[in-house]
């Protein structure tokens, strides 16, 4: 199978598969644990049970005792504030995903450039950002990016959330770069050759022939990366962004109720779960779909 994915132009040992394009054979690079594997119906159920237990349980227990606002009501009370913070998490995840994807596609294409120096450089950048802790990258963005910048006489402010977007887009870029490199290299050399024989330049081949074929190959990994990124967004609270975890902490300290601690964090966990779980399911579906079709 590997021979068919990377056909050597003239290998007499290469079996001729009748009626099948080598292009259409499955390409499934092994991957570490995916978000989809973490999120199973089992974990979902566990989470719901826990949430129910902690928010309703104390109400029942305290029914006879002194009158304290039930935990469930407190959660309800804080929901609008927390929801606003959560929206911020989503916004940051979407923006950094977009920026990281655009940059990553470019970097991935550079990684396979025939210009050795350029390819090497792109590889180094990719490896650097892929192997740095996200938190550290975020710290560097806070330290290195000024809070405002003079561009053509106008002062452009760089609030914390923009720094957060930049900081998170760097690892996304690096992962995307690797996905793209893998996908581009998994396209049979026959595609390059037939395009060349039709007069396509390298650049035209890349844009018209190769990149469109990488979309379905990269999509599942890309979506998985998005789910992971979304779950990582709470770390941007260190930049002073009022995202959901920062607000949760604020809410907890203003209520100063120890029995609220676990239910409220569980509550937020539930939100992330509800947002990420469908994405993970869809990723799995796409993975299966393309695995069968390809």
């Amino acid at each position: 199978m590997t021979e068919l994915l990377h056909p050597r132009p003239a290998d007499p040992a290469m079996p001729a598969i009748k009626g099948h394009l080598p292009v259409l054979l499955p390409v499934r690079p092994p991957r570490p644990v995916t978000a989809a594997e973490l999120f199973t119906p089992g974990t979902a159920l566990l989470l719901l049970v826990l949430l129910a237990w902690f928010s309703v349980g104390p109400v029942v227990a305290q029914a006879a005792g002194e009158t304290r606002t039930p935990v469930a009501l407190l959660l309800l009370k804080w929901t609008p504030v927390l929801a606003e913070g959560f929206a911020f998490n989503i916004l940051i995840s979407i923006l950094s995903m977009l920026a990281g994807t655009v940059l990553g596609v470019g970097l991935g294409v550079l990684q396979v450039s025939p210009n050795r120096l350029l390819a090497r450089l792109a590889w180094v950048v990719t490896q650097f950002f892929r192997n740095s802790p996200w938190l550290v990258l975020l710290f560097y963005c806070i330290l290195l990016i000024p809070f405002e910048l003079e561009i053509l006489g106008t002062t452009v402010p760089f609030p914390g959330w923009i720094k957060a977007v930049i900081g998170l887009s760097l690892p996304v870029m690096a992962y995307m770069s690797e996905f793209m490199r893998g996908a581009i290299q998994s396209i049979p050399s026959g595609q390059w050759e037939s395009a060349a024989s039709l007069g396509f330049t390298r650049r035209q081949t890349m844009i018209e022939v190769i990149l469109p074929q990488t979309v379905t190959r990269v999509l599942p990994s890309w979506m998985n990366l998005y789910a992971v990124l979304t779950m990582a967004t709470p770390i941007v609270s260190i930049v002073g962004v009022n995202e959901v975890m920062a607000l949760t902490r604020a809410a907890l300290s203003s209520e100063s109720r120890t029995d609220l601690l676990i239910p409220m964090y569980l509550y937020i966990l539930g939100w992330f779960f509800l947002y990420c779980y469908p994405i993970s399911r869809l990723t799995r579906r796409l993975e299966r779909k393309y695995a069968v079709k390809l």
């Binding site: 292009v23 050759e193 024989s197 039709l198 396509f200 469109p212 074929q213």
Partner: peptide, 30 residues
């Protein structure tokens, strides 16, 4: 390459394009 056409053993069609688009692509883009 305008003068010399080539057909390969493994066809090497562009799988993301229809038959018509495969035929049209080079004259339009190149």
């Amino acid at each position: 390459r305008k003068k010399v056409g080539m057909v390969f053993q493994q066809y090497n069609l562009f799988p993301h394009k229809t038959a018509l688009q495969n035929v049209m692509m080079a004259p339009v883009k190149v």
